[in-house]
Design a protein around this nucleic acid. Structure first.
Lengths: 226, 226
DNA sequence: AATGTTCTCCAACAAATGTTGGAAACATAA
DNA sequence: TTATGTTTCCAACATTTGTTGGAGAACATT
């Protein structure tokens, strides 16, 4: 029998897995409070009590969705890191932007769920929180903003967050932004990638590849411990 | 009697105004579906039916909140534009970041409400949508990314969106990000401002003040019609 | 004081929602 | 076949939620 510890990543054809992915889709669209147990059951095509049979209460299911989400992100980041290891920072950023955009545009609920976690009040502290800290630390080290995963200065984390958020914003906001730009999906995706590279790459390359974190133009204190 | 058209910006001490600001705070924290009419009434300290007496149904009240929000943003942008008119782009950005951050950190629900509008599915098309397009066009022209408010290329709008979103993300995400960075409010605000300047200014200054929109490093197609 | 208007609350209703008990359907093994 | 365990659904429950009617208080105007 499978390890009882692998709670995440249900077999997608099992009933439990089908419920999980329907819940994920709906929670991503409407947020926790915007989704009812019956909505999820209808999406799967089952009775609502079957849902309770497999996944305790609504909160448990939501946490399971977040755990699943976290695992997906971890995998994607590892995949990117494998591609860009050792490359210069501008290439790293360009590849990360391309790969993450492609992925997030194919899984629109992913970025939505992250944003809901970031910006809505939740009563219970979620699992995603601590995992997110890990992801950020890994990226910071990979980008050369910190030397040690366990000692990442706040400035470095903040820069990683800025990059991260920029990317997921455009993915999450497609329904809102794309009509404003009058673009079809493909054109929107292309413009987003181009814009992200335009915004993000100069910040990390301007001072030269070995001077990341150096302060320029005298705005605010310099990042010290890098 | 006051003009019936000034629906937004209620007198803050009137009952209608008190309800509006309580609703605004709560909708900003929990989103539309996360807030009940009774929560708003309790926050104000009145009975729920009094709320209905003043503001039709829950949806009407939410739309009123968005209209109010929009007016506040318009005012703030106008105020910024007055300060920075004619200044070079790096100064414009630095001032805009400082002023907007100060404002958003004092009114945390503002950025939350915008993000909810951007990223959650809403059944009814809101007023904020069209206003947001106007704001973006104004900023694009002010930043020199477009010559004419009515002809802003999608690339220019996308760049403005990237700047805009970066700012409101840090404000909205304070509850989530600040514990991750282990900073108090003041330090967080300082790091955010520094980070935003680090990320945003180089993109618009690197190629020189008269070359905004020029493509660099060969990523993607150039912005043509600027 | 009398009267009309505005405001506020109490109580209630219908619908929606989270949740559960139990019976049927299904599978599996003896 | 029977016996046993698993899965699914039907029906119902208690609570929450959006919403309204009506009675009284507060207030203004005569």
């Amino acid at each position: 029998m499978p390890s009882p510890l692998e709670k995440a990543r249900q077999a997608p054809d099992s009933m439990k897995g089908r419920i999980l992915s329907a819940a994920r889709k709906l929670y991503g669209e409407y947020g926790f409070h915007g989704v009812t147990a019956r909505m999820i059951a209808t999406e799967v095509g089952i009775d609502v009590s079957t849902l309770y049979y497999h996944w305790g209460d609504k909160q448990d299911l939501y946490e399971a969705v977040l755990t699943d989400l976290n695992e997906e992100i971890r995998q994607k980041l590892a995949e990117i890191e494998k591609i860009v290891r050792g490359k210069p920072i501008d290439v790293r950023l360009a590849v990360a932007i391309d790969v993450m955009c492609d992925h997030l545009f194919q899984n629109p609920e992913t970025s939505n769920l992250m944003l809901f976690s970031f910006f809505s009040k939740t009563r219970t502290q979620s699992d995603l929180d601590t995992r997110m800290t890990e992801h950020l630390a890994n990226i910071a080290v990979a980008m050369g903003l910190a030397l040690d995963k366990s000692h990442v200065p706040p400035q470095a984390n903040a820069r990683v967050l800025a990059v991260w958020n920029s990317i997921i914003n455009f993915a999450s906001g497609e329904n809102y932004f794309r009509p404003m730009l009058h673009l079809d999906r493909a054109a929107y995706l292309a413009v987003v990638k181009e814009t992200l590279k335009f915004i993000l790459i100069p910040a990390f390359t301007q001072a030269g590849p070995d001077a990341q974190g150096q302060e320029r133009s005298g705005q605010g204190p310099a990042v010290s411990s890098i």
